Amino acid sequence: MTTPSRANPDDISDFLERMNTRRTRYSRGYLKRDRLSFVGHPTAKCLRYKAPPGFGKSVQVAQCAQAALERNEDCIYLDFSSFRPKDLSEADLIANSIVAALSSEGFSETPTTSSVNILALRLLTDHERPVTICLDGVTDAATTQRFLRAIALETPETVRLALSEGLPDAMASLSALSDVVTIGPDDLGFTLDETGSVLSLDADQARRIFDLTGGWPLLCALAGKSNTPGVGIAHLPEVQAYFENDVLAQVPQPLRDCLMKASWLEEINEDVCNYVFKTDAAGLKRGSRATAGSTKQNPKRIV
Rank of each mutant, 00 (worst) to 15 (best):
T24C: 14
I94W: 13
A67N: 08
T110I: 07
E90I: 01
F55N: 02
E157D: 11
E128L: 13
A241L: 04
N96F: 08
D79K: 06
L192K: 02
Y275K: 06
L163A: 15
L218Y: 07
S81E: 04
Q145D: 05
A95G: 03
A152H: 06
S104F: 03
L69G: 03
A249Y: 00
A221G: 11
R18V: 02
D202F: 03
Q240Y: 08
T24M: 13
F107S: 12
L124M: 10
V276Q: 03
F83L: 13
Y242N: 04
L222G: 01
E154H: 13
D74Q: 06
N117S: 02
V231K: 07
L259I: 00
D169Q: 06
D186I: 01
M171V: 02
I98V: 14
S5I: 07
E157A: 12
S263R: 01
R22S: 11
E109R: 03
I118D: 15
A292S: 09
V303Y: 13
N245S: 07
R84F: 10
A170L: 09
G214Y: 05
L265R: 03
R160H: 09
Q250C: 07
A120D: 01
D257S: 06
I302G: 04
F243D: 05
S104R: 14
D186V: 04
G166W: 00
S164G: 15
I94D: 14
E154A: 14
H41E: 13
T228S: 15
R146A: 10
A152K: 06
K86P: 15
S81F: 12
S108M: 05
P52I: 00
T21K: 15
I76T: 04
S164N: 04
S13A: 12
I268F: 11
D11K: 09
D136F: 10
G56C: 06
E128M: 12
A282L: 02
V239A: 02
S173A: 07
L31Y: 11
A223Q: 01
C134R: 02
K50H: 09
Q250V: 03
A67G: 04
E109N: 04
K57R: 10
W216G: 00
F83Y: 10
T139A: 13
T110G: 13
S89Y: 09
C258Y: 04
N227W: 00
E154Q: 15
T2F: 15
E128N: 11
T2L: 14
E154D: 12
T2G: 15
D246H: 13
A221R: 05
G137S: 02
T139K: 08
R256I: 01
R208Y: 14
G215V: 07
S89V: 03
G189P: 00
L174C: 08
P4T: 02
Y275N: 04
P9L: 11
D126E: 14
D271S: 10
E157S: 05
T213A: 08
D257T: 00
A68E: 04
R122T: 13
V303C: 11
D186F: 05
A65C: 06
T43K: 10
G166M: 08
S226D: 11
A290F: 05
L259V: 00
T110H: 12
D169W: 02
R35K: 14
H41I: 00
P4S: 10
R28T: 08
E17K: 01
V131E: 13
I151L: 10
T279S: 15
